[in-house]
């Protein structure tokens, strides 16, 4: 049984269809990459799964660990074992990295999670999760905090994007750490080379899955610019 099952999901923003008849599964301990260009609905998918405010499906089901979670709030989904690393993590004044990594595990040593994302505990544990961190540092700390939760499903929204983007090797290391934890990962990206580190991949275009299966095959399809949904117009930006 998949840990996550999305069945015929539909979501609109205003009059615009963002997701339509969208279905996808993630198996236990699987890394499933969702590949697509900007504006194709990748982050919306992440917010719908996490249950963010304003993101409720028009129709369809989100099933996690055998339970329909459409009406659950963010923290209720987190309690079930879903968590997320945002594309642009927010800053927090007055919260140290040490406390941030141990929000739900007070008293534990979070050093190992910083090491997993390539940051030195000595240098970072005492720092604040505020404006003094660069975008790349903040992103790594967010990934470390998600690792520290040992989630059943981690949604990683474009960990490879932004000015201080993480390298492919960084992402490989983080994914390995999640796998070692036994977590499933929904990896959202617009870079085809990142897809290759997944167990399975799906390409999204205009809110629909256009290609799914072997990551190499999906990456090739993505590069071919022959998407049947947009006829290459959206995917042509690849």
């Amino acid at each position: 049984m998949p840990i996550l099952g999305i069945k015929s999901l539909a979501y609109k923003a205003g009059n615009k269809n963002i997701l339509e008849g969208f279905s996808l599964t993630v198996d236990p301990a699987e890394v499933h990459a969702v590949l697509g260009t900007n504006g194709t609905g990748k982050s919306t998918l992440a917010y719908l799964i996490m249950g963010c405010e304003g993101y409720r499906p028009l129709s369809g089901e989100i099933v996690f660990d055998g339970k329909v979670i459409n009406d659950l709030k963010v923290h209720e989904r987190a309690t079930l074992g879903i968590t997320m690393a945002w594309q642009e993590p927010v800053r927090f004044e007055g919260i140290s990295v040490r406390d941030y990594l141990a929000l739900k595990n007070r008293g534990t040593d979070p050093s190992q999670y910083l090491e997993m994302v390539g940051l030195s505990p000595e240098m970072y544990l005492g720092r604040m999760v505020d404006k003094c961190l660069s975008g790349g540092e903040r992103k790594r700390i967010e990934l470390a905090s998600v690792l520290a939760l040992h989630p059943k499903l981690a949604i990683l929204d474009e960990p490879d994007s932004g000015i201080d983007m993480l390298s492919t090797q960084d992402i490989v290391n983080v994914i390995s750490a999640f796998k070692k934890n036994g977590s499933s990962v929904l990896l959202i990206t617009h870079r085809e080379e990142i897809v290759l580190i997944a167990d399975r991949a799906s390409q999204i275009c205009n809110g629909r899955i256009v290609c799914s299966g072997n990551p190499e095959k999906v990456a090739e399809y993505y590069k071919s610019r022959k998407c049947f949904v947009c006829d290459g117009e959206v995917c042509a930006y690849v």
Partner: peptide, 18 residues
């Protein structure tokens, strides 16, 4: 801040704790 709230809630904190 809504984003701060959701980030902490995604870490399993209740709205009050966040």
């Amino acid at each position: 801040d809504k984003r701060q709230m959701e980030t902490l809630m995604a870490h399993g904190l209740t709205p009050e704790e966040a």
